[in-house]
Amino acid sequence: MSGSEIFLQQLIIGLSNGMIIALIALGYTMVYGIIELINFAHGDLFMLGCFAGLTLIGLLGLDQAVAGTSGTWIGLILLLLIVPIFCGGLNWLVDRLAYRHLRESTKLAPLVSAIGVSFIFMNIGLLWGGIPMKVFGFGRAAAAPKAFPELVSNANLLGQSAVEFTGKDVMVFVVTLPLMALLTWFVRRTRAGKAMRAVAQDRLAAQLMGIPVDRVIGQTFLIGGGLAGVASVVFAVYNNTIYFQMGYRAGIDAFTAAVLGGIGSLPGAVLGGLVIGLARAFCDQYLETRWTNVLVFAVLILVLVFRPSGLFGSRAKEKV
């Protein structure tokens, strides 16, 4: 592989992973935009989505499926529908049970609660891996990483080229780009989306307008969780390995992306996701893999300390 081919390869990997990070980051930024909560459990929600996806694959018998057949495509679409519902519903439920009661308390109380939820989710992920299903290795090694079957072909679409651009990369963009467009339309144009922005900008005024604030916040958790669910499926199909502690790292990457783009800003989260995805890919290639996490954390700290409103744009960012 020549130097430019290596560069191109990392660019593809970075952009694909960046889009996945962006989907998770959107969930962070939406929730932060509306109630100023760093939803610490968001990464672990994403992890649970991966486990739900693998369970579904086991139930549907998709682990035997061959990539590219119509049955596999239908299975993938089913996954992309059901897992987001699971994640969205779970996120909504957690808000209902844990965070809603803390709206009027100090800001740190819901954050501590979210950390607790993150631990609970992580533990659920550990136990989930112990379910005696074939896809989980019959539950013999609960904590071990699980293989996620190849639902999309790994064949290089660029033919003989040394640079690999596969159906998986195409899938990432085919799923994420329209979804982001849909989300933008939802937030800008629909009544529910406008209500979300109104609640984010001035909760009291929104209440006085008759906007049922708790319901709108619940919807935000639902949508943010749904996006994490889509990210779960796309991630698992793209990377083929899942494990119960993956949520923490994924969550940190995504949160860093959200902060980088100016937390609360939707386009910022996407841009931040791409930056983090690319930074990781290039650090893996040109520096050392073992320093990649340090790089991400260093970026996170530096941005929070020196540009807390994000790298792009001013403080008065559109929230939600």
Partner: peptide, 18 residues
């Protein structure tokens, strides 16, 4: 307490939310 980053029209629409 106008919603600062909603348009004038959107502000009015929010008034009719119920």
């Amino acid at each position: 307490r106008i919603f600062p980053r909603l348009s004038v029209r959107e502000n009015l629409e929010m008034g009719a939310f119920q």
